[in-house]
């Protein structure tokens, strides 16, 4: 069973450029290593309007989250203070379509680290 759903689709080239710009603004152009940050998100979103995500990176001063396929890729930036019990946080985000969610961690040693995960946003219907 399938109801009518409005899909917001982004031209891929534009999406990539905006994401790269956001990353460059965060890193100041510094090199970004793969890994060293954990991004946890569901394989399939139960509801694209509220997708639970968790980010964690040992030694992180800040973690930025981006949604590469949204009209605007910015999602949130977490800054950890001296009383942060762990360098991790969870929130819920909006995803306009199936896309990669990206986390960039800035560690206290000044290095940058990156992780990404694809989250599928589906029309749904038709259970067994």
């Amino acid at each position: 069973g399938t109801g009518a759903v409005a899909l917001t689709l982004m031209p891929l080239g534009a999406a990539h450029a905006a994401t790269e710009d956001a990353i460059a603004a965060f890193t100041g152009g510094a090199e970004v290593a793969e890994g060293g940050v954990t991004l946890t998100a569901p394989e399939i979103a139960e509801n694209g309007n509220t997708v639970p995500i968790e980010v964690a990176a040992e030694g992180a001063a800040e973690i930025m989250v981006l949604a590469a396929g949204n009209p605007n890729p910015d999602v949130a930036t977490f800054k950890f203070g001296p009383l942060a019990g762990a360098r991790e946080a969870s929130t819920r985000i909006r995803l306009a379509q199936t896309q990669d969610v990206i986390a960039i961690a800035k560690l206290e040693d000044g290095t940058f680290h990156r992780a990404s995960q694809e989250v599928k946003v589906t029309i749904g219907g038709c259970g067994g």
Binding site: L7, G124, G125, G127, G128
Partner: peptide, 25 residues
């Protein structure tokens, strides 16, 4: 076409954790 592809992927995605539905619409 989007609907059919969407349902087909929910049934035939090679990763079982992406198989969310019933049989094909």
């Amino acid at each position: 076409k989007i609907v059919m592809e969407d349902v087909a992927d929910n049934l035939f995605n090679p990763d079982p954790y992406y198989q969310q539905g019933g049989d094909m619409v």
